[in-house]
Design a protein around this nucleic acid. Structure first.
Lengths: 190, 190
DNA sequence: GAACATCGAGACTACGAGTCTCGCAGAAGA
DNA sequence: TCTTCTGCGAGACTCGTAGTCTCGATGTTC
């Protein structure tokens, strides 16, 4: 048993909730650590006792807040599974969460540590799911086995990430089927 | 004719050169406006007389410094043209310029004004070239005309932008052919 | 040569991330 | 119960950087 007063788990939750809610709803780059502390009814020092930086708090809020947000349907129709998954990702990107992802991505460009943590905790788990589904498609004989899987995944999800970060064109749920329509003939077995 | 002393064009050039060189070579997010001013032998005020913000300077340096960096080959082999273009973009992303693009992208996530200017001055001109080449491919009967062109371009270049911003995997010139190999069967006429 | 805009130099302001200090609140051990 | 230890809220504080202001000097037009 540790000695003194124990960590206030409720305060931790309030911090993550506040971070998620504020960053997701306010204009980009407009949420300071003071805002989070105030909204969570917590002292700034309490935040810095448990998180190394402002960015770490937001990343934590992102990961915890979207744990089960993009589940993968698992049927024998791999193309349908991917199309459904694309739709959930598109919904995620258009929700407040998309705003938080953008903010994290911005930080990641100038902070290698955050970049690595973002990849490990947010990107990779989802990537692994997609990878597994793709592999299943190969086993089922629905997808070519002579392609670079990583490139295939980049091609499928790249349009989503690009539109999120560049913002050159809107991202609607109609894109899910458009993307598979453009990609699938190239990666499906003939 | 304007009245007083005229603008020092050489100082302007020195500022853009210094910005390009510093941001491209130093660790991300490590270049302040003071560094640029010092390296260019220019007073800070001189910079702010002509540019509205630090970010605007860097964007200017990026646009001016890469004006002709990604030319498009124009042959009757559209797939070959795209593959060649992908290689030039990959080389650009792996050069110091890639570092500058990342820095601008980071700023764009939290500053809509910069985002818009980045799109208009850096993204769109290149996009237009790609779009035109794609259109030419359709006219030549080499590319399907029933797809959403914007999605096709996102699928082709998305992998590059995604690897640049996420950094989950390295980006080598070998990817150019891998990408076209994965995409082309889906978008080429049969 | 008068009027005017730019220049370099450097002091100054504004603001936000992260630190430090303090007095109080709970939890464990004697 | 009393001591000790650690977490807590509150708020002052440091520090770095973007952007502003001032000034004396320089070059350009009328």
């Amino acid at each position: 048993m540790p000695r003194g007063r124990s960590r206030d788990k409720d305060a931790e939750r309030r911090v993550l909730d506040a971070a998620f809610e504020l960053v997701g709803s306010r204009p980009p780059g407009d949420v300071g650590i003071n805002d989070i502390a105030a909204a969570a009814n917590v002292a700034k020092q309490t935040i810095y006792r448990w998180w190394p930086s402002r960015t770490a708090v937001i990343l934590d809020a992102l990961v915890v807040g979207t744990m089960k947000a993009t589940p993968f349907r698992e049927s024998d129709d791999i193309r349908g599974d991917f199309e459904a998954h694309l739709r959930t990702v598109i919904r995620l990107f258009n929700s407040p969460t998309g705003q938080i992802v953008r903010e994290m991505l911005a930080e990641a460009q100038t902070d290698p540590t955050i970049a690595e943590e973002f990849r490990q905790r947010f990107w990779q788990p989802r990537r692994d799911l997609s990878q597994a589904r793709l592999q299943r498609g190969i086993e089922l004989g629905q997808i070519r086995d002579d392609l670079d899987n990583e490139i295939v995944l980049d091609a499928i999800y790249g349009p989503l990430w690009t539109r999120l970060t560049i913002g050159h064109l809107p991202l609607t749920s109609a894109h899910a089927s458009k993307i598979t329509a453009a990609i699938w003939p190239g990666i499906a077995t003939t």
